[in-house]
Amino acid sequence: MSNAENSNQYSTIVKDGLWDNNGVFSMLLGMCPTMAMTTSATNGFGMGLATAVVMAASSYLVAVFRNQITTEVRIPVYILIVASMVTLVDLAMNAWMHELYKVLGLFIPLIVSNCLPLARLEAFAAKQPSFPALLDGLFMGLGFTIALTAIGAVREIVGSGTLFADASLLLGNSFKVIEMRVLPADMGVLMMILPPGGFIVTGLLVVVKRVLDLRAGKEIQMAGAHAV
């Protein structure tokens, strides 16, 4: 493959992951953490980043071992790899990034029950060389982060009137400036932070993405068909 083709392929992977084929808004995968962890923008962002790390690492590993894994046992092996990566991230953060772990620790084991990493392993990493697989895992993960932060931001603003509350706990004190109060404290619509809000906001944001895609002259995807 020539260099030009390579960089072309890479930019497609990046664009697919971040927007065109976004894991949440287009493929409707990884719904469980999407709903459960988006009560605030900060939580969504943290969960997204941890997922991106696990996705990049497991995509890379699956691509490296793709010729050794037979079709019959591939699902257990993929799950094993994702679960191992999650355990490693969990242990390492607990030991060496303890402050961050205290904020994110709650979310990390939940990455195992996310079907997005598994879907990308099956659809992409299993058939591709290791570098594109790494890139796909990373950017699918970052696209996931964008989606979760967006859903979290909408739910947080409407639900509790703040935006990025407690971001300094996650990112360090220099990020104190992005903590905002958008609406007065008693104006929040609590329903948005409760479970029903998760469904409704996700549904509406899928519509927003369709509108933006239409404006840009793209076909809109009518279904996220291949949900497991």
Partner: peptide, 21 residues
């Protein structure tokens, strides 16, 4: 055999990490 090998390999990596951390 393949499944067992992967379990063993990743089990070892995890045990090692657990030990280190």
């Amino acid at each position: 055999v393949i499944l067992f090998a992967f379990c063993l390999g990743f089990g070892l990596v995890m045990a090692l990490t657990n030990d280190v951390t």
